[in-house]
């Protein structure tokens, strides 16, 4: 049971969190792991609360819902407040600081990263923020093989957008490794 990892991607409808969860789950399958992906959302297609869960385990997965996330991604203020208390002690919380102002209490490992702002500034497309987030998540938690995940992004991305989505994924990796002040040195590594 100790190998069970529960990942919760939260934010608002339209941010692409369910798609990010599906891509992560597909990569887990290709990486020979057991995986279940679930979601919960309101009746609205955009703007309402959106939550997607991914459970990755080497054992068979019975209960399919995320109850105590080991990793939480919060892409807006409301979901940050709602799901933070559910995170397991020592769990990692990645927050999109574009939308979440804080405060970030010290008893969680909260990592605020300007995910959406960087997607806009570095790649000119806010819609790829979900792939930036996916990069940062996998950089932080090494859930699945990086190349497998990158390949799954290419498979899933709408025609013609594979490259920018993969760039966004790589941007997420750099963002994580550079920590909370990502602007420092980032432009030197970004070709655009």
């Amino acid at each position: 049971m100790g190998s069970r990892q529960e990942i919760l991607l939260t934010g608002s409808g339209g941010q692409g969190l369910i798609l990010a969860a599906i891509i992560l789950a597909e990569a887990a399958v290709d990486d020979n792991k057991n995986v279940v992906q679930t979601q919960s959302y309101g009746p609205e297609a955009r703007g309402g609360a959106s939550m997607a869960g991914v459970i990755i385990d080497v054992d068979a997965i019975e209960y399919p819902k995320v109850t105590r996330p080991t990793l939480l991604l919060a892409m807006n203020e409301a979901s940050y407040r709602k799901y933070l208390p559910k995170v397991v002690p020592g769990g990692l919380v990645i927050v999109d600081s574009t939308f979440v102002a804080g405060p970030f209490p010290g008893d969680y490992r909260v990592l605020p990263l300007p995910i959406t702002r960087l997607a806009r500034e570095k790649l000119g497309r806010e819609v790829v923020a979900n792939m930036v987030a996916l990069g940062a998540i996998n950089a932080a938690a090494a859930l699945v093989n990086r190349e497998i995940l990158k390949n799954c992004i290419l498979q899933r991305a709408p025609k013609g957008s594979g490259e920018i989505n993969q760039q966004a994924f790589e941007l997420g990796y750099r963002l994580y490794h550079q920590g909370m002040e990502p602007d420092r040195g980032l432009s030197a590594q970004t070709t655009q």
């Binding site: 399958v29 057991n34 995986v35 279940v36 992906q37 679930t38 979601q39 997965i61 399919p64 819902k65």
Partner: peptide
């Protein structure tokens, strides 16, 4: 709804 919307391996 759980089984219908759930994705698994």
């Amino acid at each position: 709804e759980v089984v219908g919307h759930m994705r698994e391996k």
